[in-house]
Design a protein around this nucleic acid. Sequence first.
DNA 1: TTGCATGTTCCGGA
DNA 2: GTCCGGAACATGCA
Length: 263
Amino acid sequence: MPELPDVEGFRRVLSEHGAGRRIERVRVLDDGVLRDTTPQGLGRALSGQRFGEPGRVGKWLLGYTDGPTVLLHFGMTGQLLWCPQQAEGHRHDRVAFQLDDGELRYRDMRKLQGLRLATDEAALRAVVDDQGRDALAMTRDDLEKLLTRSGRQLKALLSDQSAVAGLGNITIDEILWRARVFPIRKASELGSGERERLFAEMWRVLDESVPAGQVPSYASWLTGARDDAPGAPCPRCGAALAKERMGGRSTVYCPQCQPAACG
DNA sequence: TTGCATGTTCCGGA
DNA sequence: GTCCGGAACATGCA
């Protein structure tokens, strides 16, 4: 699940329930998600601190406090939930930040990523500086430069978090399908009309997804048909959708709307 | 039992 | 240096 829109949703959860509140205690239920700290270290660093207004860069949620910053990455299966007191536990709860009337729980089945603790500016920078311009902050000019200067395949380029931060597999397929561009076209070989469509559709997909806290599954979107690909009809033209591995990721596209040859 | 999954990182090779 | 594919990570499901 977690791509930029999802992480924006988790940021809202942290903002609504955590900002300005004191962390009474940190419960680490599975230290397999701690990347550069220990249960004791995390507890010592954060207990007694107050959460500030959280931030986000790409798929990283930045949990600022009066002191250190806790950085959360959700991998493919992570979530952040607000659980009032007495709420039942879940087998995939990994870390819980206890506040006075409930707790914020980091839940993650696969533990592909996890939590990091940044105790100073340099540690925070180390993570943030690896990220490219956040997709939501990208201007037309930013994307223009990125595309014209790179000979890489679009799918791979847009998946690269150091190039554009926040886009994930589902979002990228959706954007490329709406812009009618074949996923492995070389970025620098796109025409100006195609670059313009890419920017417009990136903006539209994010604009509709961010308030929803996920890339929504609509019948008129590729998302509504992709689970049944290959073979499911393209919501736009009815041709059979294709599903192939491109740029190292499973990719769904419409051979009719997104022809491999320049169009 | 096998293959696949919406993420990232590391490695070898072109 | 750039780019690509493949494997690895941990877990559940069809």
